[in-house]
């Protein structure tokens, strides 16, 4: 079974969770032997950006020592052989340059997403 994880919802509870829960879930399932790739769309294209910095959160004397590092998580996926695609137009509409993104993520034009889905048994849209 081959699954495409489509991630659209972005930065939802990431500061509390110390990660994006779907990127995390993908890493965990990959580690368990799953065959998955990822497509970032909508605001989630920002997950492919280098230099995301969520450090410094504190409330009273509570301090976050391990903030989310989503760009590192994306790199981790790539390092495990997971393909990470992003919708090209969703990035450009947000003013994101390709040079701003981590190495290895692949742009896919909006018009080719349907064709991409054909390569997977399931598309899970989170």
């Amino acid at each position: 079974m081959k699954v495409l994880q489509i991630v659209e919802s972005a930065y939802r509870g990431t500061l509390e969770e110390q990660d994006d829960t779907i990127i995390w879930l993908t890493q965990a399932m990959k580690g368990a032997g799953g065959d998955l790739d990822v497509l970032l769309r909508g605001n989630a294209v920002s997950y492919a950006l280098k230099d995301q910095d969520a450090s410094g959160l504190s409330f009273g004397d509570w301090k976050q020592t391990e903030p989310p590092r989503i760009d590192e998580q994306v790199n981790g996926l790539l390092g495990k052989g997971v393909k990470v695609y992003y919708v090209d137009e969703d990035a450009s509409e947000r003013g994101i340059d390709k040079s701003d993104l981590v190495k290895g993520v692949q742009a896919i034009p909006r018009g080719q997403v349907a064709e991409l889905l054909g390569a997977y048994d399931h598309a899970w849209h989170w």
Binding site: Y11, R12, G13, T14, L15, E16, E17, L57
Partner: peptide, 9 residues
Amino acid sequence: PPYESGRST
């Protein structure tokens, strides 16, 4: 609720 939204943070 906890862990669901950036709004809580």
